[in-house]
Write a protein that binds this DNA or RNA. Structure first.
Lengths: 228, 228
DNA sequence: TTCATACTTCGATCCTAACCGAAGCATTGT
DNA sequence: ACAATGCTTCGGTTAGGATCGAAGTATGAA
């Protein structure tokens, strides 16, 4: 026995409700302070502080000091991807929070997955990009095509600049509510920013859900028409 | 807060070392009795019994009674896939068991991932099948081609029979040691069985590793030649 | 300098759950 | 019928860790 990596350690990290809630809050993509995270976890700052230290030691979180604040984020996008996959697994096993709740539909429609768009709309977007030949599926990964690059330029995304980052341009991320892949990576991030900048949609303060304006929704659906 | 599925519950399931060890043992694919699992977890049968009840209530395990034995397996292959992905994440974060250990290289080379082949050899096999056009990559999924079907028939795999099962024929599963996909699904299972039946390889009693015979290794490498 | 804010560290409490011994139930073998 | 095996349930103990109050450190504002 005792083979392979230690899954119990990360299991324990996520296994505490307060920590799980803090991590979920960070899935919203915004850097949050220890005080904000304490509120998210439903605990005092003291307790949150020890939890955060633990999560940082476990390489799940990164922090940066700024003035007297300490901002926490997920260590990198692979943590976000991992958490999303756990949510998918949990949902599939019936490990739902007590009741679906009123915000749930909005969350399933469009939400933030760390830094990119997820939910029905996120999946629809990737499906369309693939169907239009903007993105190719290669093995496990995704790759932007030349025609895709020009198409994106036309809606105001400078792919060239994205390439210079060390981070992969395209990544697929398994959506917990749709059980299918959506687009992550720096391109996924850029697309979401683009929509937000254009005012098509806005993030909400206290939730991961993304709210589209009527006009924004119209434009988005025109750009990515097919339901599948 | 309190958005989405309850990840803390499954985190806690996996977060206990004894349970994690039992789950890892079940990744070997064999159905194990409560007594065997107790040994794997390093605990008494009483304690194991309560753990197993908990894991079953959480839909991670399935059991079937047979005589006075009670055989446990992972609830289905998606649990295996999930555990493998956690191992990959844990390994990437440096959450290794204290030291790599002597069995580690064998494990990385070829091991059982619930019911199919994983490790270097598992990844190599899928790479070859894709390169030869036996398997197509479609979106997130994999699909066997016609030419692939005939090729498999020639090595003694009846794909038609596999299709009748409810379980998907091809699935990709992320390999924790190689960080790339290998082949799961009923076809992945059939291929491993095929190799074992032919005597190319054998499973070990106490470990997930798969040991190839010299002749078996020669045949396997001839069938799947390119390192990539 | 002084005060306020943001956070960490210390110390103590408390509670959950992991654990095992003992007893109980079920199945099989003789 | 009786013993042996495999497992579960019960009861009581124990340890780990989650929690918070209070005190300590760091940064910024007045």
């Amino acid at each position: 026995m005792k083979e392979g990596p230690d899954i119990a350690q990360i299991g324990a990290m996520i296994g505490d409700p307060a920590r799980a809630n803090m991590l979920t809050a960070l899935m919203g993509g915004k850097a949050l302070t220890a005080t904000e995270l304490a509120a998210a976890g439903g605990i005092t700052v003291q307790t949150a502080s020890t939890h955060l230290a633990k999560l940082e030691a476990g390489n799940l979180l990164a922090q940066r000091k700024q003035g007297r604040h300490r901002y926490f984020t997920l260590a990198d996008d692979s943590v976000g991807k991992f958490l999303e996959s756990i949510m998918g697994f949990a949902a599939g096993r019936g490990h739902l929070r007590h009741k679906p709740g009123p915000k749930e539909p909005a969350l399933r429609k469009a939400r933030i997955c760390y830094d990119h768009l997820a939910g029905d709309y996120g999946v629809r977007m990737l499906d369309n990009l693939i169907a239009e030949g903007a993105i190719d599926v290669l093995g496990d990964g995704l790759a932007l095509t030349e025609s895709g690059e020009t198409a994106l330029k036309s809606i105001g995304i400078d792919v060239h600049a994205l390439r210079s980052s060390r981070r992969p341009l395209c990544r697929s991320c398994l959506d917990w509510s749709e059980r299918r892949a959506h687009l992550a990576g720096s391109l996924g991030k850029a697309l979401l920013s683009n929509f937000l900048d254009k005012g098509w949609a806005r993030r909400t303060a206290e939730s991961r859900s993304v709210i589209f304006s009527p006009e924004g929704e119209r434009q988005f659906l025109a750009l990515f028409p097919a339901a599948k």
